[in-house]
Simulated assay, not measured.
Amino acid sequence: MFILFFIQLMVVLVFLLIGWAIVKKEAYGLISSFHSRPKEEQEELLHNGYPQKTGMLLILTAFVLLILLPLIFTPFSYALEIQIGVMVIMLLGGFIYLSKFEVSQKRKKSYIISISVAVVTFGILFGVFYLGFQEAEMTLKENSFEISGVYGDQWEYEEITKVELLEEMPEVLIRTNGYGMQSISKGHFKVKGFGSSLLFINKDHSPYLLIKTADDTIFLNSKDAEKTKDWYHQLVEQLDKAE
């Protein structure tokens, strides 16, 4: 939690520093391609207030993120997602607004580019969050079980070496490839005492199903505790049949 806090705090400080340098120190070189433009374009941008408004956008974004920062220490499940969403909306929306202050002959092009970037970015983020927040489901077949969704796969019962129902989730140390949000962990993570593991967990929704196979360590649960327990009992039953 504190690592996440300091990462977000660093983002806030970077936005503040860059915004302050542009507004107070006239460090216009921090604005992409500003110094590579012809002199007359630079003068028109300065006349329109484009650099100053760019700096103020960064400063305003930093202050809003700073206000939202304490959310990660509350029970609110989607604090990080809200913070990321607000930052993206403010920056992309802000750059669309800044197109209004572009040089006159490039204003239309700037609107088209900034709106296109916003649409593509929101589309990608929507897809990522939609897939990431889909709850994993376990399906038991005759000779194997399958976990659905992103990072899901299929394993043979004969591969299983251990099945256990845990009341507490072991400490997750680091994400190596996956979704690591405040409310979910999905994908490949390092777990204390278990090493590299495949997680499909909803945080703070015990119990957690631990499945060890010859090659993988899997942690899985549902927001519905009874469903997690059903998965455990069904797996145990299948393993008993196989013996």
Rank of each mutant, 00 (worst) to 15 (best):
V23C: 13
F101I: 01
L71R: 03
I160T: 00
T228W: 01
M1D: 07
V12Y: 06
V191Q: 00
K227S: 04
K229G: 04
I174D: 02
V103P: 03
W231L: 04
Q234P: 01
I3G: 07
E168V: 11
L46T: 06
E146Y: 15
T228R: 02
E26Q: 14
S185N: 15
V191Y: 02
M1L: 09
L69K: 07
H233N: 14
L68N: 05
L98F: 12
I3F: 08
D230W: 09
S222W: 00
I22G: 00
E41R: 08
G149P: 00
A62L: 08
M56C: 06
V172I: 14
Q182C: 02
M56E: 05
F126N: 13
G193W: 12
V150D: 04
S99E: 03
L199Y: 07
K229H: 06
G93D: 11
I84C: 07
V119I: 15
L58I: 05
M56N: 12
L199H: 04
Q238N: 15
P207M: 03
I84T: 10
Q42M: 11
L198M: 10
Y28E: 05
T139A: 12
A214E: 14
T228Y: 01
Q42P: 05
F5M: 07
K229L: 09
Q83E: 11
F189I: 09
E43P: 02
H35L: 13
N177Y: 10
N48H: 12
G127H: 13
E81A: 10
M138E: 02
S110D: 07
P75Y: 11
L60D: 06
G132H: 07
G193A: 12
H47C: 03
L68H: 10
Y111F: 15
F95T: 15
D224F: 13
I31C: 12
L17D: 09
E167M: 07
Y50H: 11
I31K: 11
I84N: 09
S206P: 15
Q8T: 06
Y157N: 07
L210R: 00
P70A: 10
W155L: 07
D153E: 13
E168L: 05
N202G: 01
T213S: 14
V86I: 14
L239R: 01
Y28S: 04
I22V: 13
K192Q: 13
S148M: 10
Q182T: 04
Y157Q: 06
F126W: 13
Y179L: 09
S110V: 09
V120G: 09
S222V: 10
G152K: 04
F76L: 12
L45D: 01
Q234S: 10
Y151H: 08
G94Q: 10
F34R: 08
I82Y: 05
F129A: 11
M56Q: 09
S32C: 13
Q134E: 15
K108E: 14
